[in-house]
């Protein structure tokens, strides 16, 4: 057993994982520190202050930020969920559907949203939406987001599925499980890490999108990125840093919750 553990271990990988976290989090440290800056600057330190947090909650723009945060989170959640469902279903057909003529074309279609630069998708989608009379608003943002989330969900899920040997589902079907049961009780549990990865990628890509959203949104519907891009003639203010820090706080709470749930979960699992 100890030797098995030995083989799994790759020297230096733990160190590189820590490097990875450092790279990811160092810039955020800057964001957090400057959210407490008394000065309006994001490069010169002017003393500690909570004024930007007060601004977020009580300032004249706080209703805008609140609705923007709500829109962003709900759109990201719905878009990522829809994209994950669509992608999972597509991945099963692509990896477990035997060979068929439109396979390559379908793969091209699914990955199309990442191949086209965002600004092109943005203009094309707007032209298309207005030509079919799609009213711009929350719904148009949502549709556009589902579309560009699909490849981000699809690729992790399909690659995971390719790593699951097909004799599992064959065995299940030999035991008279129907396709739904095969999927639900055999494939899905093994597929879950891929589904989770796909969902998370789709979620952050939706949460981050500015260009497409800015084109296809209707007047008065803001998401966080469109509310944040105030940088043009004004420069980035620390209130954006404060807003970002708050968002980080929310996400860290979720992480803690998931870790805690995971621990409870595995505690029950470890019984058998």
């Amino acid at each position: 057993m100890s030797r098995a553990h030995d083989v799994r271990h790759m020297p230096g990988f733990g160190f590189l994982a820590v490097v990875c976290l450092l790279v990811l989090y160092l810039p955020l440290l800057v964001v957090m520190v400057y959210s407490f800056n008394e000065s309006r600057s994001i490069t010169l330190w002017g003393g500690f202050s909570l004024r930007w947090y007060a601004e977020i909650f009580y300032g004249p723009e706080s209703p805008k930020f609140k609705t923007a945060a709500w829109n962003s989170l709900t759109i990201a959640l719905i878009a990522a969920t829809s994209a994950t469902l669509i992608a999972t279903s597509a991945a099963i057909a692509m990896v477990r559907g035997g060979s068929f003529r439109l396979r390559s074309a379908t793969f091209g279609l699914i990955t199309m949203p990442i191949m086209v630069p965002e600004i092109v998708t943005a203009v094309a989608t707007l032209v298309f939406f207005s030509s079919i009379g799609f009213v711009l608003g929350y719904a148009s943002i949502l549709v556009a987001h589902i579309v560009f989330c699909i490849p981000f969900a699809y690729l992790p899920i399909s690659s995971r599925l390719q790593g699951i040997e097909s004799h599992y589902d064959e065995a299940a079907q030999d035991l008279y499980a129907n396709r739904w049961q095969t999927f639900r009780y055999v494939l899905l549990p093994m597929l879950l890490p891929g589904v989770l990865s796909g969902f998370l990628l789709a979620f952050i890509i939706s949460l981050d999108d500015f260009i497409i959203t800015n084109f296809v949104k209707g007047a008065g519907v803001e998401t966080l990125p469109t509310a944040i891009f105030g940088a043009v003639k004004q420069g980035i203010k620390p209130d954006i840093m404060a807003l970002s820090t708050l968002l980080l706080g929310v996400s860290v709470l979720l992480v803690t919750a998931s870790w805690w749930l995971g621990r409870k979960d595995s505690a029950t699992h470890d019984q058998h």
């Binding site: 004249p60 007047a219 105030g230 043009v232 003639k233």
Partner: peptide, 10 residues
């Protein structure tokens, strides 16, 4: 209104 970002006080 179609406006620049952050260019009018709320």
């Amino acid at each position: 209104i179609y406006h620049w970002f952050e260019y009018i006080p709320q």
